[in-house]
Design a protein around this nucleic acid. Sequence first.
DNA 1: ATCAGATGACAGTGAGTACTGACAGTCAAT
DNA 2: ATTGACTGTCAGTACTCACTGTCATCTGAT
Lengths: 196, 196
Amino acid sequence: MSSGNNLSNDDKLLLAAIDLIAEKGYNGVSTQEIATVAGLSEKTLFRRFGSKQNLLEKAFDRFHYAEEMTKLFNEKLVWELQIDLLLISRTYHKIMNRNRKMIMISIKEEGNLPGFRERTQIHPRQLLDILTNYFMAMYEKGKLIRTDPELQALSFMMLNFGAFMNNLDSNDNFPSVSLETFIMESVQTFTRALTP
Amino acid sequence: MSSGNNLSNDDKLLLAAIDLIAEKGYNGVSTQEIATVAGLSEKTLFRRFGSKQNLLEKAFDRFHYAEEMTKLFNEKLVWELQIDLLLISRTYHKIMNRNRKMIMISIKEEGNLPGFRERTQIHPRQLLDILTNYFMAMYEKGKLIRTDPELQALSFMMLNFGAFMNNLDSNDNFPSVSLETFIMESVQTFTRALTP
DNA sequence: ATCAGATGACAGTGAGTACTGACAGTCAAT
DNA sequence: ATTGACTGTCAGTACTCACTGTCATCTGAT
């Protein structure tokens, strides 16, 4: 078994394309190479997807990350700052890591394939809105100091986005710190700063 | 005057290469295009730099960003948490923005041109060490609560790195917030969290 | 057995690309 | 005026790439 699982040929091509483009960039990979890694012929690639560009677009459609955050939060929040921020932070990293190759592609190719950045929406506005509303609600419950909730939400997101970007290439610049301990410490910092 | 300032031809080529490669990626730009944008002939490009790869390497050597942070901090710190964090944050963004094209190249081409990422060292270890030592010194002065100084320094850096990355492409995802207000608010958050 | 659909091997096309060689023009210093 | 360093134009080379056409092969359902 070379790499042939029980995947469909289409999926083999899509996954190979994602892997290679995330690593070398759209212009750095040939259709021949994608087909070979997928264990199929280049001809099949063009028969099924028509063009290289369409192959990448179909990959986005197939493996886009769901907007699961909305539901998660509305159900699981317990209105205890530290606990909720931990949940939010962990969920964020789980989602981002699951889609890190697509995110890497959208960053690298934003100059070549316009519109892809918006599709992956690296900093989902959704999450910012949810966090902002969460902070506002917490303030009205008397569990948060008086601040600009949108700015606080943005800070918290930027913190996690920076940590995610730093880990993306996995040649960890700071191997002494694990993601989990980082999350716990940063959440504690925000908790200390925002509790009355 | 088309775009011909009083730059040398070499610099015209280097700057054009940086602009275009940062936008479209190394494989997305041809030497012909670089020469045209520089207002010179492709032949001159090869006469002066020999190869496309060497052109990019010379661009790195010429426009790398200095390690000016060490001196800046050792001289200007006043051991007042909020003031110092403001200085650090602003200096960080100043340096990063001045070199954002080179940083963008090193991110995009890390799969194609290995070794470039290390040269730009996106999250300078230097800065982390300085911040860590600063937090330790502040703790011994009694001006900081007891925490893990390296983790706090890392959090602060990730926060600013995330903000920088978000602004990189300048198609601001959150136009309602300016960088300056973001800096002030995030510094205030850390100050609140870390003062005894 | 047969048929339909999917696939592969192979050759090829047209465009683009990095890079070179030959030759001529410009301009300042001597 | 002559030299020399620098530049542009143009043609060309060797190569790669996205993409197509042809035909044989395979597979599974009927």
